[in-house]
């Protein structure tokens, strides 16, 4: 019989008695149901796509991959592990965000991009990042720093979520956060510069799309989800009666992008 250190023996003996826990919160959601749940920022009335581009991106990606899931509305980004909506509760109860969602969907519902060559895959990554940086920045800037959009779209959107006076405070807090985020990327925020960046990006995407059904041939990919999300939010959210929003005008100038956006929406999101 091997010699056992008495201090180890003592440690193994402890604790002498274990009491049952006083309170255990119920597993949430109530049971890890077989169906994964995607938590998204609430959509506007009469629509099933969220008003937030990041959420639309994953909604579209899940729809493209035919991934079975239900949707839950949620306006508290703090609920997500990454602090940013959306997040997905997988069928086994894991909580996933961002890239993890993409990996999970690829593993369970099949990889949309498996047919692409290495060079096409490289293009896919670079164009995805082009849209995610340039279009995202322009959209964010327009939402918070275009006076008409801010007063008629953005502030009402966030203020509707909380009671007065909390809504006034929280919406301004969100604006301060977004401003800080933008300033950490650009030292000077100039409307013309941000817009011309977005215009270049749109022109590049329009060239890549050409007259194809999707960006890489006849099947959708992650890039399609990304571009669709921004185009859809720009075209639907920034539509003001009797006023031109420069970013929306810039999108409208590319006929194939507008047609593409309409086609994707009708195929995957039209209410039947």
């Amino acid at each position: 019989m091997p010699w056992v250190n008495p201090s180890t023996k003592l440690q193994n003996a402890l604790p002498l008695k274990t009491h049952p826990a006083v309170f255990v919160p119920a597993a949430w959601p109530a049971e890890p149901a077989g169906v994964p749940i995607l938590y998204i920022f609430p959509p506007s009335k009469q629509a099933i796509t969220s008003v937030d581009a990041e959420c639309v991106k994953y909604q579209a990606f899940l729809a493209f991959s035919n991934y079975k899931h239900t949707i839950q509305e949620c306006h508290e980004p703090g609920m997500s592990p990454s602090g940013q909506l959306p997040f997905l509760i997988a069928s086994d109860g894991r909580i996933l965000t961002g890239r993890q969602i993409v990996e999970e969907v690829k593993n369970t519902a099949g990889d949309l991009e498996s047919r692409l060559t290495d060079v096409e895959r490289a293009d896919l990554t670079s164009f995805t990042l082009l849209a995610e940086t340039k279009l995202d920045f322009a959209l964010l800037f327009t939402l918070w720093y275009d006076n008409r959009i801010r007063d008629t779209v953005t502030f009402p959107m966030y203020e509707a979520l909380y009671p007065w006076p909390l809504n006034k405070i929280l919406s301004r807090q969100i604006r301060a956060e977004k401003t800080e985020w933008m300033l950490s990327r650009k030292s000077v925020l100039k409307r013309d510069e941000i817009l011309s960046d977005a215009k270049q990006a749109l022109a590049a995407l329009s060239t890549l799309l050409g007259s194809q059904l999707f960006f890489f041939g006849s099947k959708a990919s992650f890039l399609d989800a990304v571009v669709f999300s921004y185009l859809h939010v720009i075209l639907s959210q920034l539509a003001l009666p009797g006023a031109d929003v420069p970013l929306r005008e810039a999108v409208m100038r590319h006929d194939n992008l507008v047609q593409y956006c309409r086609r994707v929406f009708n195929t995957f999101f039209a209410l039947t």
Binding site: D123, F127, L130, T133
Partner: peptide, 18 residues
């Protein structure tokens, strides 16, 4: 070419931003 200009822009943004 036009496609290459678009690619050039995309890769530039990949490098400069990410």
């Amino acid at each position: 070419s036009a496609t290459q200009v678009a690619e050039c822009l995309a890769y530039t943004s990949l490098v400069e931003e990410k």
